[in-house]
């Protein structure tokens, strides 16, 4: 049966050439245009973390155990999984974990309000192994009345661990809540060399500041200057006014404020 081909046969053959695009093509386009971010898992200070990044830097950091539940909350963009961070970013993230400081790591806080950004940038200044109360952040950014707003801005930190909202305590000195649970906050601080029980015990005793009777300076209890005070010279205060009344002046490093 050697029937010659018809035009319709040729057209059918051509239609049969329609195929699917390679599986990763759409993802690659979305990443190249910045419409999608990428995510890779890295070893964090107390366990694996998902680092989400885009053109403007790290846009989210989520504990592996909470991925992807918290994602919608943090990133408005689709996310494409990759095996590893690009080398430069990987080095910056590693250095941030090692030093407990952001350093030159770019973070993308674009979707946040100016106020939230200001709060987070301030929290990023708190040295590793130290804590400051919400009220300190509020006063430092020139909004002493915005203590609650500071708390909610920190709670929405898209890049926890990297921006150390775990170093901000309640105004009564207790470590308080954390977006991923109070245990994680304690663990992060412990990994930085701070004993969370010591902080909680002081808060229980309502001690907010400690001073040195040799220098006449008072500090937040976890300030590195305060931790150098030897027990015989250590004086405890329950308020700024108590310290001021005793003739002490505030530390210029930790700038105490409740």
């Amino acid at each position: 049966m050697n029937q010659p081909l018809t035009t319709a046969d040729v057209e059918r053959s051509l239609a049969g050439l329609a195929t699917s695009a390679p599986p990763h093509l759409a993802d690659q386009v979305l990443v190249a245009t910045g419409v999608a971010d990428q995510v890779a898992t890295v070893a964090g200070p107390i366990g694996p973390l998902r680092i989400v990044f885009g053109r403007r830097g790290v846009s989210a950091c989520v504990p592996d155990a909470h991925w992807p539940d918290h994602l919608a909350h943090h990133v408005g963009r689709p996310v494409v999984e990759v095996d590893a961070l690009p080398p430069r970013l990987a080095a910056q993230v590693e250095r941030a974990f090692d030093t407990g400081k952001l350093g030159n790591l770019p973070v993308d806080l674009e979707t946040l309000s100016d106020f939230q950004r200001t709060v987070l940038r301030k929290a990023a200044e708190i040295p590793p192994g130290e804590v400051r109360p919400y009220g300190w952040v509020a006063r430092e950014i020139g909004k002493p009345g915005a203590v609650r707003a500071v708390g909610s801005a920190l709670n929405k930190n898209p890049v926890p661990v990297l921006i150390p909202c775990h170093r901000v305590s309640r105004s009564d000195g207790h470590l308080g809540e954390y977006a991923y649970g109070p245990e994680m906050k304690r663990d992060l601080l412990a990994a930085e060399g701070l004993d969370p029980d010591v902080v909680e015990t002081l808060a229980d005793r309502r001690i907010r500041y400690v001073g040195s009777d040799t220098t006449g300076i008072y500090c937040h209890p976890t300030c590195r200057a305060a931790r150098r005070i030897t027990p015989p010279h250590r004086v405890e205060f329950r308020s700024e006014s108590a310290a001021e009344d005793a003739g002490y002046r505030p530390c210029k490093v930790c700038r105490p404020a409740a």
Binding site: S20, A21, L25, V35
Partner: peptide
Amino acid sequence: DAAFPDFVRALQDRVYSGVL
């Protein structure tokens, strides 16, 4: 940004098939 992923998904097979 919200609609672009749908644009890519809607047309990628046809564009790739033709370009191929």
